[in-house]
Computed example of a mutant assay.
Amino acid sequence: MTESAMTISASAALAARELRVLVSRLRRRFQEQSDSRELTPSQLSVLSRLSKGDTTASDIATAERVRPQAIAATLNILEERGLIERRPDPADRRRQVVSLSGEGREFFDGRRRAGEEWLTTSLQERYTEAERQVLLDALALLERLGQE
């Protein structure tokens, strides 16, 4: 056991467990609320990355922490479904630039909207204004976890 593990408070351990469970539960609820077209989590992750802009297969593999062969298979499936497009990289013809197709953009945006609508409605119906303010304060604290 490391020295830092011995000094972890019970409240930190409990908060970590509860947060992990909650994030998993919320993730499942988001997925239930939106059309997934039976895509795998890795395929959805690639679409999410591409929603931020065009990139190369090697950059996606690096970001996803998988082998290039695994990304190639994922991209082939997404291309077959009409969700992405590939074209030669003008700066290096040996590489391809990958982007969302029009259908891929519609799919991704619709999925995001459905999740946001579900969450917004749930927060409106289940929480008071004061409780929503507490959530906003807690989210500001949790934001620090994402900055590491």
Rank of each mutant, 00 (worst) to 15 (best):
L139C: 05
V66A: 09
S34T: 04
A5T: 02
S4A: 08
L26N: 05
F108M: 10
A140R: 15
P68W: 04
S36H: 08
R25D: 01
E106N: 12
R132H: 05
S122W: 15
V97W: 08
Q69P: 00
A5Y: 01
E80L: 02
L136C: 12
M6V: 03
A91Q: 15
T120D: 00
A10P: 01
V46R: 02
I60Y: 03
R113F: 12
S45C: 03
S51G: 05
E18S: 04
A73E: 06
I77M: 07
Q147H: 10
L78W: 03
A73I: 07
E32G: 03
E3W: 00
R49A: 12
F108T: 05
L22V: 06
P68Y: 06
L75W: 03
W118L: 13
R29L: 07
Q31E: 13
S99E: 05
D35W: 02
S34V: 02
Q33T: 04
G115N: 11
S36G: 13
L83G: 09
E125L: 15
A61E: 02
E117W: 05
E143F: 09
A15Q: 04
S4N: 03
S48Q: 15
F108D: 01
L47H: 09
L136M: 14
L14I: 06
I77Q: 07
E143M: 11
S51I: 00
S36M: 10
V97H: 03
Q69V: 10
A15W: 02
A61S: 15
R132V: 06
L44Q: 15
A140E: 04
V46P: 00
W118F: 15
L44C: 12
T40H: 13
E18K: 11
D35Q: 09
E125P: 02
L135V: 10
A12T: 10
R25P: 00
T128F: 11
R87C: 00
E103W: 06
R93T: 09
A16K: 07
A61N: 03
F108E: 05
A63F: 01
